[in-house]
């Protein structure tokens, strides 16, 4: 962890969505207008050049939080600070500034590229929009970026459909790097890729981190990937952060019962085939989260207190925080 001031701070951020009564998404058929608290009072900080992993299962709000941080959607409440400067409601111009500092890499490498543009056009556009380099240098800079992500500049002439998933993801990374961002929000950037390609892209992330002063918010459900890449980990469950810790602490001594469950559920090569599953029950609907601690219906240690009182993050180690009534 870096000792310097954090580059990015998330302070008490919440994001609510109103569930519409559409035909799709059937829990939404109820008559009341319902509110999904996708992200609920989350505070995080990201150090310069730090890799913070945000882990959790589908529907826990990790992608929503990522999109809030990347400035793609507005938080319902709370504050974002970049290098100490607050950005609560972003105007169009501020939004552009934010984008110069915080960029996002998406899960689906094909869907995040314009299918009608060539790779060169995709990369040159932000260079022009943000006036990163003089016009005469745009082409050279694009070549340099392609080279940096391990693609031959000849790829510039191609279109996304002519590239493999791994190559498209490299283009997505090159496009994010055009503005020389200080923070990259990576939303499941390797989960759509095959294992052998995944390793290549993970190595690219590690290389870029050495070459550039860049911090990652790495959103993933894959704990193996997270263990490999991150300095610190934040675990999310139903919109709330339930534990944050350094990577080593989290993987060697997870404190929150949910973190323990999650680590236990990851299939591991070489583990006995008779391994018994400890986790019980299902993740509740975010539309109707349980009272008190959201995890209490599945938690083996739940007490009456957990059913009524929301636990807050408390220090449970030198750099480890858990939101659990067990640790008081």
């Amino acid at each position: 962890m870096t000792a310097t001031a954090p580059i990015l701070e998330v302070d008490d951020v919440s994001k609510n969505f109103e569930a519409s009564r559409g035909l799709l998404g059937m829990p939404l058929l109820s008559r009341k207008r319902e509110v999904v608290r996708a992200v609920s009072e989350v505070s995080l900080s990201l150090g310069q050049s730090e890799v913070l992993a945000l882990v959790g299962e589908s529907g826990c709000g990790k992608s929503t939080l990522g999109r809030v941080i990347a400035g793609l959607i507005r938080p319902t409440s709370g504050e974002l600070r970049f290098a100490g400067i607050s950005h609560t409601v972003l105007s169009a111009a501020e939004r552009r500034d934010w984008a110069r500092n915080v960029q996002m890499i998406f899960q689906n490498p094909y869907a995040s590229l314009n299918a009608r543009q060539t790779i060169r056009e995709i990369i040159e556009e932000p260079l022009r929009v943000h006036r990163i380099v003089p016009k005469s240098d745009i082409a050279a800079r694009a070549d340099e970026l392609l080279d940096q992500v391990g693609l031959d500049p000849s790829f510039g002439k191609r279109q996304p459909h002519q590239l493999s998933g791994g190559q498209c993801q490299r283009v997505g990374i090159a496009r994010a790097l055009t503005v020389v961002p200080r923070v990259l929000v990576c939303d499941e950037p390797v989960s759509a890729l095959d294992v052998s390609i995944q390793a290549q892209v993970l190595n690219l992330f590690a290389d870029l981190r050495e070459e550039l002063t860049i911090a990652y918010l790495f959103i993933s459900h894959d704990l193996g990937v997270v263990e490999r890449l991150s300095d610190r980990v934040a675990v999310m469950y139903l919109g709330r952060i339930v534990e944050t810790a350094t990577r080593d602490d989290l993987f060697s001594s997870p404190k929150h019962p949910y973190t323990q469950t999650l680590l236990d559920a990851v299939p591991k090569i070489g583990r006995s085939r008779a391994h018994s599953v400890k986790v019980s029950g299902e993740r509740p609907s975010p539309l109707d989260p349980p009272s008190g601690c959201h995890f209490h219906p599945r938690c083996p240690h739940a007490t009456d207190r957990c059913r009524v009182e929301i636990p807050h993050l408390k220090a449970v180690g030198s750099n480890q925080f858990a939101a659990c009534h067990l640790y008081e």
Partner: peptide, 9 residues
């Protein structure tokens, strides 16, 4: 999800 996967396995 991994927890569901673990249960089903």
């Amino acid at each position: 999800d991994v927890t569901t996967q673990a249960q089903i396995l």
